[in-house]
Design a protein around this nucleic acid. Structure first.
Lengths: 196, 196
DNA sequence: GTCTATATTATGATAGAC
DNA sequence: GTCTATCATAATATAGAC
């Protein structure tokens, strides 16, 4: 049986999220109208409401999806017992995962303030879960006498800020390949925490 | 001679910039209307145009003022020749300066994309000038055989990201005083670059 | 599922009275 | 210098035809 003309639910849905992600990252949530998203997708504004109840849900779904994927990919990773090896693996993982998703990372940091309170708490919780994984590695390394860390909680925030900062300047056409960047950060992170 | 009723140029001007800074940081440039700024100041929207030609100039002036102050305060600092001492001073300076101006720091990173191209280039140039100061310290330390740094340009970006990251979680009512935080970051930065 | 049309509200900026 | 009033647009979201 032939499809109803103009019926593209399975294609349009993802396209809406992709367009919203790209536009929110480029211009900011508040600066992007439903009309702009619709134009990018190639439909009229009204049609978007088949895919999201409102603009806020669109933003929340993007952030939630990003965090869910981050945690899911981490959870599927094999556990590494040696703290030194685990720290290196975390460093490489973080850089690689985030470098591949610059738009999602950008809005995850920049548009938190545009989430309604309930949604904000939700995303913040997921972020804390992720941070806790790094902190656990640092704690283990200290317990085993391998790491020398003035304050593990602060070191966690410092390392994550440092690694996520790659996204502010990284370009696939830049001076360094991603694997080289990973290497450099692994060195710096190791030097910053290892016992002398 | 009595003043014209309702004439408060010298008071209202700064109040407009303060209100805009606070609101832009809290809600984002695009989400803040001239009416919201006016309400915060306690005037009508039309009155704002006595203090700024348009909304874009208001944003640019805030970012420009922030960067100018950053560079001016740095320029007034005495030069430190020893790279180790200079790096510690830079670390403490950066944390202290930025912790005191969370709103300005926030919009300096978040609202760059809302600057018109010419204004964007202007601010980016000032930021590069600031980064160059840290990179020069790292280069000097390497030349003198004091620092071991895989890539000075990347180390510069990494350290600045790490230090600026303090602003995402620092609170005056938090577990640690700012002086303690400075101390911890000095340790981590030193450990990350010093020759073993 | 998408379209057109529309209700309702808000926007940046300006003009002119005081 | 500030106010009120207004212009010209643009916003989110919905209703109903197809």
């Amino acid at each position: 049986m032939a499809r109803t003309q103009g019926s593209h639910s399975d294609i349009t849905g993802p396209k809406v999220r992709e367009a919203a992600l790209r536009l929110f990252a480029q211009q900011g949530y508040a600066a992007v109208s439903m009309r702009k998203i619709a134009a990018e997708v190639g439909v009229q504004a009204g049609a978007l409401y088949n895919y999201t109840p409102d603009k806020q849900s669109l933003l929340f779904d993007l952030l939630r999806g990003h965090m869910d994927e981050l945690l899911a990919v981490r959870a599927a990773q094999p556990v590494i017992n040696d703290p030194v090896a685990a720290l290196e693996e975390f460093t490489r993982f973080h850089i690689r995962f985030h470098a591949k998703r610059p738009d999602a990372v950008f809005i995850s940091y920049m548009e938190l303030r545009n989430l309604e309170p309930e949604n904000f708490i939700n995303i913040e919780g997921l972020r804390r879960d992720y941070e806790a994984q790094l902190e656990a590695i640092l704690q283990r390394g200290m317990a085993e006498g391998l790491f020398q860390i003035p304050d593990p909680r602060i070191a966690t925030m410092a390392i994550i800020a440092m690694l996520t900062g790659v996204n502010t300047w990284y370009s696939a056409e830049g001076r360094l390949k991603l694997s080289e960047i990973e290497e450099i950060y692994c060195d710096m992170v190791r030097m910053a925490v290892e016992m002398k």
